[in-house]
Every structure is written in C-alpha cells, then in structure tokens.
Amino acid sequence: MSVEDRLAELGVTLPDVAAPVAAYVPAVRSGAYVYTSGQLPFVDGVLPATGKVGVGEGLVSPEDAAGYARQCALNALAAVKSLVGSLDDVARVVKVVGFVASDPGFAGQPGVINGASTVLGEIFGDAGVHARSAVGVAVLPLDSPVEVELLIELKQ
C-alpha cells in the first residue's frame, strides 16, 4: 500500500507547507536523508494555541499539546513531500526531536511528543519507529506550545 493510500485510509490530508517565519527552508536533503526544520502546529497558517503546556488554569493541556505535536509531524511530512515529491520514497523515520514549551512544574514532555510518534507509526508502520528526544523549553517561536523536527531516510 502506498503512503498516499495509507493517509487516505487514516483520513489524513497533508497540509500545505508552512511558510518559514525566519531565514531558513522547511527541509533540506543531504544524500539519502531529509532534515526538516522545526515545525510548529500551524493549521491553515494559524497556530491553534499559544502558551505553556501543563496542568492548571491558563495552560495548554497535555492532551491538546499531543494533538498539536501530531500536527507538527504532519507539517514536517508536508515539507518532506514538497522536497522529494512522494512520501513513498521514505525508507524510514530515523529520529524525531520534539520541544515542549513547559510550565516549570510540567514533566510530561514524552507524552506530548507521543502525538507525533504515534501518527508516524500509523502512517509508516515499522518504518515509522524512530529514535526520539522530547525536550522541555521555556518558550518556542511565536509562543507555540510545541515544535517538532524529523530526520527521514530515503530509499536508495
């Protein structure tokens, strides 16, 4: 089954590639690898939420943040596809790096970044199993609650 068929089966439509917010490109190919820039959870050019992730009044919930991490991963895949033409050229997801703008008492970054990891596994199966970092940070660009970057290996 092609990746496009799998996306359709999952009811997932890749978004348009998010426009860079500074001096960089969404993805770069080097040999058999594609490195994406950090992707924010833009939906139709807008961040669905801003602020810190945690538990309590005025914070982005960990559950919502996991959904935003999923959107970041889809945005990253859109950047990969725009560069290589087809996600069927993906051999495997090598690594996911996720950043979570965290309230000082929040230590659930791995659960948040599972939103990205889970969707990659759903799309690519065993080829979506990857190494990962989930890092808590004080603030992210545009006050986004999450940011995700991917390292993708392409088929030779």
Rank of each mutant, 00 (worst) to 15 (best):
H130N: 12
G11R: 06
V90L: 11
V55A: 09
P20M: 05
L154K: 11
V43C: 00
L47S: 08
A32W: 01
V148I: 15
S133C: 04
I123L: 09
T118N: 05
P62F: 14
V135E: 15
D5C: 02
V43F: 05
E147A: 15
V139M: 08
A27D: 09
P48F: 03
G11E: 03
V53H: 07
G98H: 12
P20R: 04
V84Y: 11
E147Y: 00
A23K: 14
I152H: 00
G67D: 05
P20T: 10
V12Q: 04
S61N: 14
A27N: 11
A32C: 01
D5L: 11
A22N: 05
P141Q: 00
P15R: 06
S37N: 13
G121S: 12
A116N: 01
V80I: 15
V90D: 04
R6T: 07
D103S: 15
A49Y: 02
S117E: 07
R29P: 00
A18P: 06
Y24I: 06
S102V: 08
S2H: 12
S37K: 09
V53W: 08
N114D: 15
P62E: 13
D64C: 05
L140Q: 14
D126N: 03
A22R: 07
A127F: 03
A107Q: 09
Q71D: 08
L59F: 14
L74Q: 02
A138P: 02
V25F: 02
A78P: 08
E147N: 13
G51V: 12
V146H: 03
V112G: 05
G54E: 09
R29V: 04
L120C: 02
F106S: 10
G128A: 02
G45T: 04
A134S: 15
L83C: 04
V148Q: 09
G51A: 10
G31I: 01
Q156E: 15
T118Q: 05
A18D: 05
S82I: 06
K81T: 00
P110C: 10
V21K: 09
A65H: 13
A127R: 12
G38A: 08
V21R: 14
F42H: 10
A32Y: 01
S86G: 07
E147Q: 15
G85T: 06
V112I: 00
H130Q: 14
L77F: 12
A19W: 02
D103E: 14
P104A: 04
L150R: 04
A78Y: 07
F42G: 08
